[in-house]
Design a protein around this nucleic acid. Structure first.
Lengths: 344, 344
DNA sequence: TTGAAAGCGCTAACAC
DNA sequence: GTGTTAGCGCTTTCAA
C-alpha cells in the first residue's frame, strides 16, 4: 500500500471533508453526489471538483442506514463450477444493469445448512430482494425468507410451493417429455446416468418425470448409476462404459447433464458404437460450451439466462406481468434433438 | 410474500425488540448475538430464545457503521463464463471460510471502465480488502486502490507493477517455457491461436513470452489468429481448420486456452491427423473439466485455486510470509505434457 | 436553492 | 456481568 508520500495517518474521507474543501454544506454536497434535488450549476461544479480532487468515495453503509435503502440484490446459488449458474448470473446482471441495483452472490455447495447460513448473512445486509435457486430450504431458511418483507424469487424449478415468486422450468416435465421423445423414436432399453441425488433436487425431479414418461409406454428404466465429484467428462466416459458392460443391449442413455453426456458420446464414438443407430444419447442443459463436439448431443435448454433475467426483473419491480408479488413464471424448455436421438 | 396471517404492518425487527422481549438491555443482547464479552449463561439463554422466537436478523449496516468494521472482501474478476475464475473464487471462499470474512464478487467483462465502476461501488461499502484480477487498471481505478487504505491484492499475473500485494504466475514465463519445450521436441513451423488481444492482457503476455522463446532458437511464429465470442470448442475447430489450410506444413499449434485447444484436438483426430507426430498441440490453464478427452491435451496449470487461496490469506492477514503489505507471491505453473507434445 | 437538526440501528467506551 | 451514553456518516425533514 502506498502512503502517497505523506506522513499524516490516513483516515477515510467523509462528506464533511468535501464540504470543507468546497465551502458548501454537507447536505448540499450529498445532494450533488446523489443527483437529488435542485442544486445550482455553480455549486454543483465546485462540489464535484472538490470530491474528485480529494478522491472521495461515499460511504454506502452510512447512506443505507440513513435512507433505509440498499441497492443490493442477494443471489444464492449452489455452485459456480456447475456451468449452469454463470449463465443465470449473467441474465441477472444484464437485467439489473440499468436499475441501480447490484447483485451479490452467495454459494451454498448444495448444502441446505450452508444455504441457511448464507441467507442469514445476506439478509443482515438488508438487501432489496433475494433470488435463490430451488424451492427446497431448511425450515429456518424458509421462515427467514417469509419474514424478510422483501421480494423473494426462487429460481430454476417450479415443481413445488414457492415462498413468494418463482421463475423456472418444470424439471419433472422436462424429464417426461424427454422420455416421450425417446419412446417415440423406438428406444426401449433405457438407462440413466446422473449426479448423486440428495443434493440435486432438480436432477431428481427430471429422473422422476423421465420414469413417469417411460411408464406411460409400459417401460421401466433398465439401469441407472449416480456419481459425485471428479471431472464430468471423464465420469461420463467411465459410467457409460460401466453401464454398457452391465447391459450390452442398452439402446438409450439419458444423462443428467450435458457434460457427462459429452463424455459418454466421446466414449461411444471411440468404441465405434453407432450413435444414434445402436444407441441414442441425450443430456440436459443446452450448454453451448459443448458446441463443437464431433456430433451434437441431444439436450433440452434449461433457459438459464432467461430465468436470471426474469427473476431480476421481478426484484427490480419491472416484471412484465405487472404483478406485485407471488408471481409464477414457468418457462418451457425445448428439446434440441441434435444428432444423437433420431434413428434414420 | 406471506404476511403470517397478521394484520399489523411489518417492520423489520431491531435489537430493541429483542431487548424488550427478553427483558435484557440492548447492549447485552448485542453482546450475546456477537459472542462478545462475558454474559451469564442464564441471560444468554433468555436472549437467544427471544431472538429466535421473533426471527430477529441483525442489521449489519448499522453494526458496520458503529464498529467501523465490515466483514466483506471485494473480489473483482473479468468474467464468470471463463472457466478459470470459478476456481479462483473457490480458492478464495475456502481460505476465507473460517475467518468470518465474506467474499463479494463483481464482474467487469474485461472492460477497464466497468472495472472502475465496479470498484467504486464496492469500495463505497468499505470492504476489509480487495482482490482484483490483473495489474492493468484505469488511472482512476489505480488511484482508488492506492487510497483505499486497505489490503489490495492483484491476482493471476505478476508481470507488472502492483499497487500493493500480488499473487499469480508470470504469463510471459509460461509462454517462454512452453516455447522452449516445443522447440526441444523438434517442432519448427509453429502457429498461435488465441483470444482477441486488447482485452486479455494475460493471453497477450503469454504470446509475447512464447515468441521470445521461439526467438531464442531463431524461430519466428509462422501464423496466428485471434477470435472473440462464440463457443470456444467450436472456434478451436474452425480456427484450426483455417490455419492448417493456410499453412499445410504447420507442425505445432499453441492455443491461448484449453477449450479452443480441445476443439483443435478433436478436429485433428477427426481428420486423421497424427497428433503429436505430424502436429503437436498445447493449450493453457489445466482445466480439469477437459479430462476425459480422447487424448490429453498438453497444457500448463495456471494455479487458479492456489492463487485464490493465497490472495485471500493475505487479505485475512494469515499470509504464510508474515509480511504486512506489498507481498509478492509468484507461483510456478508446471508443464503438463499430456499426449500431444512428445514425439516418439 | 441551501442549511440545520434529528436520527437510522448498532457498538465502543466507560460506569456501575 | 450489565447498563448508559455518545456517536459512526450519512439522509430525511423542515425551515429559511
Amino acid at each position: 500500500m502506498t502512503n502517497n508520500g505523506l506522513a499524516e495517518p490516513r483516515r477515510t474521507l467523509t462528506l464533511r471533508d468535501v464540504s470543507e474543501a468546497s465551502g458548501v454544506s454537507e447536505m448540499t454536497v450529498s445532494r450533488v453526489l446523489r443527483n437529488r434535488g435542485d442544486v445550482s450549476p455553480a455549486t454543483r461544479e465546485k462540489v464535484l471538483e472538490a470530491a474528485k480532487a480529494l478522491g472521495y468515495v461515499p460511504n454506502k453503509i452510512a447512506g443505507a442506514l440513513a435512507s433505509q435503502r440498499v441497492n443490493l440484490v442477494a443471489v444464492i446459488i449452489p455452485s459456480l463450477s456447475n456451468l449452469v449458474f454463470p449463465d443465470v448470473l449473467s441474465g441477472i446482471s444484464a437485467e439489473l444493469e440499468e436499475t441501480g441495483l447490484q447483485p451479490v452472490f452467495g454459494v451454498t455447495n448444495y448444502s441446505a445448512e450452508k444455504e441457511e447460513a448464507v441467507l442469514y448473512e445476506m439478509l443482515s445486509w438488508r438487501p432489496t430482494g433475494v433470488i435463490v435457486a430451488g424451492l427446497e430450504h431448511t425450515d429456518a431458511a424458509r421462515a427467514m425468507l417469509e419474514n424478510a418483507g422483501i421480494p423473494i424469487v426462487e429460481i430454476m424449478d417450479v415443481d413445488g410451493t414457492p415462498v413468494d415468486s418463482v421463475v423456472g422450468i418444470s424439471h419433472k416435465r422436462a424429464g417426461l417429455e424427454m422420455a416421450r421423445a425417446i419412446v417415440k423414436e423406438g428406444y426401449r432399453k433405457i438407462g440413466f446416468l446422473g449426479t448423486k441425488m440428495p443434493y440435486d433436487h432438480r436432477a431428481r425431479k427430471r429422473l422422476e418425470g423421465f420414469e413417469a414418461g417411460l411408464a406411460e409406454a409400459g417401460i421401466e428404466l433398465t439401469d441407472r448409476e449416480f456419481y459425485s465429484g471428479g471431472s464430468a467428462l471423464q465420469k461420463g466416459r467411465e459410467m457409460t462404459e460401466a453401464i454398457l458392460a452391465r447391459n450390452p443391449d442398452l439402446d438409450f442413455i439419458y444423462y443428467s447433464n450435458d457434460m457427462i453426456g459429452a463424455g459418454g458420446l466421446l466414449y461411444c464414438l471411440e468404441k465405434g458404437i453407432d450413435v444414434p443407430g445402436q444407441i441414442g444419447l441425450a443430456g440436459f442443459n443446452g450448454v453451448d460450451l459443448l458446441e463443437g463436439l464431433p456430433r451434437k448431443l441431444a439436450t433440452m435448454d434449461a433457459c438459464r439466462h432467461e430465468i436470471g433475467r426474469r427473476a431480476a426483473a421481478i426484484v427490480a419491480g419491472r416484471s412484465e406481468t405487472g404483478l406485485v408479488g407471488g408471481e409464477r413464471v414457468e418457462l418451457t424448455p425445448v428439446l434440441e434433438p441434435g444428432d444423437t436421438i433420431h434413428r434414420k
